[in-house]
Nucleic acid binder design. Structure first.
Lengths: 342, 342
DNA sequence: AATCGATCCCAAACCGCTTTGGATAGGGCA
DNA sequence: TGCCCTATCCAAAGCGGTTTGGGATCGATT
């Protein structure tokens, strides 16, 4: 059932039927109701391919997921972000199109998305230091919102981010207040923007108390269970071992816990741990009483908001760059306590 | 730059240019090369909205992700499956469109996808017992491949699945061979098809050794860390506690380990654990030496294969239902050992 | 020389919608 | 009564490709 058939069934022109269904004013209310009823009865759904061609809009948003051939980690945070963004899109009748591409094809993918007219805008994931995608998207003129920021980028752009620096500063201060001074940082990869900011927050807090940061107590790696385990094990084996850790994610935190328990130490008593919790639905930080003390910020909510921001920009092309900084909450769990007496 | 412009720049008709670019035989090879060169030079990319309308094909595959309002778990396995499927799509110039919808809108979403012509086919995720989506998709005539199977469905359909029953049977037998007889099953939600099959495999193995399965030693829940922890804690508190667990996922396995260590027991010595490992990129089961003994099957590879199967069906509409059963490997790690002497 | 069959190209229809630019009819007003 | 305005509808022209159905050219065949 297409527009023409429906129109002839109603004895009306396609023009009028189209206008009736799209709420244009130049159609009699009685006629409109008749059309609406017929559309529902024959369960007519306009062909979106035709709409897209006629209107010149894709009614879709792209997410490009680059897959590095070397360490091909699919970001676990990604699923929740997508879920959040997807909720926004379906509420607004937009499609979400995902492109999973080898990272050397990232640029050509963005260009293709634009020139083939597949999408009206894109969300940029996991920005790195001075991320080249920002300049690229500026150049090709595709509206975009970055999930995170890209330190070093001079161009203005829209972003939505968590205040990672503040979050890790607060986490570190919390440990310092508990008397810890040997604090290990188990960070994400430090060419990722968020990891740079977290490290800065950690260093800020240490510096403000006049403590120097021991390079041996800092690590930077993929945020997996195994890498958390390895980093913690190495640090715990030091002669002056840390009494606390600040850890970049729940998953690496589980590795840290494994390393702690492997040495027959008790987390929260012998060694304190604060993680960053993205509030993933399948990785809840305990039930009523959180397992880990954590800085928490829902990545799913971030997805919802970033998508809204982008749709807003698409609807109002005049809008300048939008920004939004979310604060993480600091929640106290069972993994922290005062520094043990020596 | 569109087809018409390119054609006039070349002094050719749009027809010829279109044919030249699409490899039709009725165009002179010299002309074709001239056209190809010009297309590259002006970096012409045909508008995909127009192609889709003209050809009547969407060049896209849909994945519908229902979000239950009650337990809104985003399946962690999902990200890797999507990554695998996405690789196949981009290799074949197909788009992947994700619809995240409240689960009561699932049916209307599938119908819309078909009648609005957004996609040429869909992948069905997380099939349940006698899953209604199979009948629905049959009815609306949208090609589909199920990731998993749906016990109870009488209609023929295409699927790709892991031999969950065999995997759990082997895992259980392995524990039995080590002398364990009190074995706990920490399963996924048993309205999910894979969980039903796993339970059957577990029961098969126990039954074959003449052991009855104690209802107290079986649990079924969401596969989260917390639920794994809770189930294991409950079972370990029984007067006749289990000496081994078969666990549905890596993440619940981590909860199980937490419960074991909480009782000052050692995993692999006091209590054995076998998990199912989906081989997620961010949750590797250790490095060289696996942390957990596990039945393993890459969900990413499953995504790749399921997508290929679907594209194949789309390209050859005559093809009947396709099936593919993958076997999981049983890999030995540090979490299992002989039953401890009483 | 006329016919034929390839070969190579083009005009125009079509995909299913939106949107522009009228056309028509009826009512209000001078 | 005549004119203008508003309300309501429609024909036709896009949107940017693909595809159908020829048309012209030219060497080969009879």
């Amino acid at each position: 059932m297409n527009l023409k058939e429906l129109a002839s069934k109603l004895g009306l022109s396609p023009t009028t039927v189209s206008r009736a269904l799209n709420g244009y004013p130049e159609v009699n209310e009685t006629t409109r109701e008749r059309v609406m009823a017929a559309a529902k009865r024959h369960n007519y759904r306009p062909n979106s391919r035709a709409i897209r061609l006629a209107t010149g809009r894709a009614m879709a948003v792209g997410h490009v997921i680059p897959i590095a051939s070397r360490h091909e980690i699919v970001n676990p945070v990604f699923a929740d972000f997508i879920a959040g963004a997807g909720e926004t899109y379906s509420r607004n009748d937009y499609d979400m199109v995902l492109s999973v591409v080898p990272d050397e094809q990232e640029e050509v993918t963005y260009r293709g998305l634009k020139s083939k007219g597949n999408v009206d805008g894109v969300i940029v994931h996991a920005p790195r230091l001075d991320d080249p995608r920002i300049g690229l998207l500026h150049e090709i003129g595709l509206p975009f919102v970055v999930h995170g920021r890209a330190t070093g980028s001079t161009l203005p752009y829209s972003w939505l981010d968590v205040n990672n620096r503040r979050a890790f500063q607060r986490a570190t201060e919390f440990l310092l207040d508990l008397g810890h001074t040997r604090i290990g940082l188990i960070n994400g990869l430090e060419f990722m923007d968020f990891a740079i900011r977290r490290r800065a927050g950690f260093a800020d807090a240490m510096g403000q108390r006049g403590l120097h940061v021991d390079p041996d107590l800092m690590s930077s790696d993929e945020m997996t269970e195994v890498s958390g385990y390895r980093a913690a094990r190495r640090m715990l084996a030091l002669s002056e071992r840390p009494t606390a850790f600040v850890v970049a994610s729940m998953i690496s935190g589980m590795g840290v816990r494994r390393a702690i328990e492997e040495r027959a130490l008790v987390m929260g008593r012998d060694v304190s741990v604060i993680i960053h919790d993205d509030d993933l639905s399948y990785l809840k930080n305990g039930e009523d009483l959180p397992i880990f003390t954590a800085t928490r910020s829902s990545v799913r909510e971030a997805g919802r908001l970033a998508a809204e921001m982008l749709l807003d920009m698409i609807a109002n092309p005049g809008l300048g760059p939008q920004q939004r900084l979310l604060e993480a909450e600091l929640i106290i769990g069972q993994s922290t306590g005062p520094v043990p007496k020596p």
